Amino acid sequence: MVEELIWKYALVNAYTHKGKANPKAVIGKVLGENPELRPKAKEIIPLVNEIVEKVNSLSIEEQEAKLREIYPEFFKEKKGKKEEKRGLPPLPKAEKGKVVTRFAPNPDGAFHLGNARAAILSHEYARMYDGKFILR
């Protein structure tokens, strides 16, 4: 079971890093997924080094074929990953046309980047909900 896990992470690491797996990264993944193996780390490290050496000796095509054989979910997960949606999160209970935001800079200091960020966020929320932005 441990060997299969090491092969899996060694192949994933090699596949994502141009055919060269990093033993430290593989050990981190193995112990991170199975914290109960941490007391046996000294026994696992030589095994990881041996398997990583074998993986690194394979060509990239062989690595991919072996990875598809033992962990086909990796390719499904990778394909299914969509680009994360960018933008502002929705405002709770906000209605189109009824959102009113304002920006009132305080006179207690110089205008700075934090002020600009607040003004832009307020303006974008007003625009997003076809509302009103008041600049004071």
Results as ranks from 00 to 15, higher is better:
residue 2 V to I: 11
residue 2 V to K: 07
residue 4 E to K: 12
residue 6 I to D: 00
residue 9 Y to L: 04
residue 10 A to R: 01
residue 14 A to S: 09
residue 19 G to F: 12
residue 21 A to T: 08
residue 21 A to G: 07
residue 22 N to E: 08
residue 25 A to T: 11
residue 26 V to C: 14
residue 26 V to G: 13
residue 27 I to Y: 09
residue 29 K to C: 13
residue 30 V to S: 00
residue 33 E to V: 13
residue 34 N to Q: 07
residue 34 N to K: 12
residue 35 P to F: 01
residue 39 P to A: 02
residue 40 K to M: 06
residue 42 K to T: 12
residue 43 E to K: 06
residue 45 I to C: 06
residue 45 I to V: 14
residue 45 I to M: 08
residue 46 P to Y: 03
residue 51 I to S: 08
residue 53 E to F: 03
residue 54 K to P: 06
residue 55 V to P: 00
residue 56 N to W: 05
residue 57 S to N: 01
residue 58 L to D: 06
residue 61 E to N: 08
residue 63 Q to F: 09
residue 64 E to N: 02
residue 65 A to P: 04
residue 66 K to S: 10
residue 66 K to M: 10
residue 67 L to H: 07
residue 71 Y to F: 09
residue 73 E to F: 10
residue 75 F to D: 04
residue 75 F to N: 03
residue 76 K to G: 10
residue 78 K to S: 07
residue 80 G to M: 15
residue 82 K to P: 07
residue 83 E to I: 03
residue 85 K to N: 04
residue 88 L to P: 00
residue 88 L to K: 00
residue 89 P to A: 06
residue 90 P to D: 13
residue 93 K to D: 14
residue 99 V to M: 12
residue 107 P to F: 05
residue 112 H to L: 03
residue 114 G to Y: 07
residue 116 A to V: 07
residue 123 H to Q: 03
residue 126 A to W: 02
residue 129 Y to N: 03
residue 131 G to R: 10
residue 133 F to D: 08
residue 133 F to R: 09
residue 135 L to N: 08
residue 135 L to F: 14
residue 136 R to A: 15
